[in-house]
Write a protein that binds this DNA or RNA. Sequence first.
DNA 1: CGGCTGATTGAATCAGATCAACTGCTGTGG
DNA 2: CCACAGCAGTTGATCTGATTCAATCAGCCG
Lengths: 226, 226
Amino acid sequence: MDTDKLAALGGIKLFEGLPQAQLQSLAGIAQLRRCKAGETLFEAGQPGTHLFAVVSGKVRVFRASLSGKEQVLHVFTGGEAFAEVPVFEGKTYPASAQALEDSELLSIPRKGFVELLRRDPELALGVMALLSARLRAFVGQIAQLSLKEVPERLAGYLLLLRSAQGRDELTLDLPKGQIASYLGTIPETLSRAIKKLSEQGLIEVLGSRVRILDPEGLARLAEADR
Amino acid sequence: MDTDKLAALGGIKLFEGLPQAQLQSLAGIAQLRRCKAGETLFEAGQPGTHLFAVVSGKVRVFRASLSGKEQVLHVFTGGEAFAEVPVFEGKTYPASAQALEDSELLSIPRKGFVELLRRDPELALGVMALLSARLRAFVGQIAQLSLKEVPERLAGYLLLLRSAQGRDELTLDLPKGQIASYLGTIPETLSRAIKKLSEQGLIEVLGSRVRILDPEGLARLAEADR
DNA sequence: CGGCTGATTGAATCAGATCAACTGCTGTGG
DNA sequence: CCACAGCAGTTGATCTGATTCAATCAGCCG
């Protein structure tokens, strides 16, 4: 039945507070899908037919260049929806998506979703809020990439993690290579940036465990420019 | 009266096809405002109270670093709406805005606009399409910044202008310094990139007039990575 | 005619990418 | 159970694209 789909839909933040009837009709059109780590969900440039949501697992959205360099745009985890852009344009996916871990996903066809939006203004407002938040994040990312250097970007990222995890002993949520790609650099350079922050006494790193020693110092660095 | 406001509102693409009644109620809350070249409309971090639309003139939206370096995110001209992000979050403007020329603007308070959205699903869909288009553009910009070098970004920008202006004799729509800032670099570097493309026989530049000599070559370059 | 701003050119410097070697870890198969 | 393949991460040496600093030039307005 749709009961597992319903449960999965209920766990998506975007659909919180949606009346039962709407959830039902979503369950009618949504597909529940399992995929393995490393699996590609879609590629930049392909026609964008579906909206996705992560039930469990982890998905990265990125752009690749011909030479194989990649820029991570965002990593989505349980409860988050993504790939909304082509829903409203009927065009292609602007980026590629790949599962980082074994994951469960919901995929919702564009057509039906738009119908739902037309009928439920509150959901529409939720979507607009989501898109806006994404825009805000991208504005920040663009500014970081062009205005700051790698150690500063790293400092910003660590502070973000800190506020997400709510303490000073962090666990890196991604392999370092992926973090490098998110910060717009390569593993070698990230490695050196980590060393630099460590030498300055701002952090302490052991594998994927990071201890924030000097949050204010990090914040100062993250704001700083040369 | 509101007749000039109505005319101005009618010229905004986002509001095209809006029923007369809705336009009226928009006119009731919108402010028509004139501002001079160089004037700042709002700054990143300020509480975002208004949505804007350009009636005439030109506005740039950008982020500045403390040291005075700036990254242009977008330049808006007649008929375009901007600063939608804080409307749906009630938070701050993620970037700053400044008039590049003497301009006429509409400013629409957040509150009333959200009301309107609740009542008109078609407008809401229009807003979502707008936000999505913006996201797509930002994805492209992020990829360019981190995956390509300056001459390649310039090639992409020129091709964009070409398709916007519909011919091979282009007029640069911005002073070169602003173009540099949009491309994530500085005037000196842009100048050298222009020289490089010229020497390769791809373009011919005289002041702010550019002639595209080899569109395919430019396209190849724009796609290329090292 | 100065004086200002925008643009260009040259030389020096620097952050980050590249290339290459090496470490350590994990998981698989002999 | 150990060996070795393979991948993630680190470290060092070098190279290069871009920024910085400085000087010059062109156009424009008062």
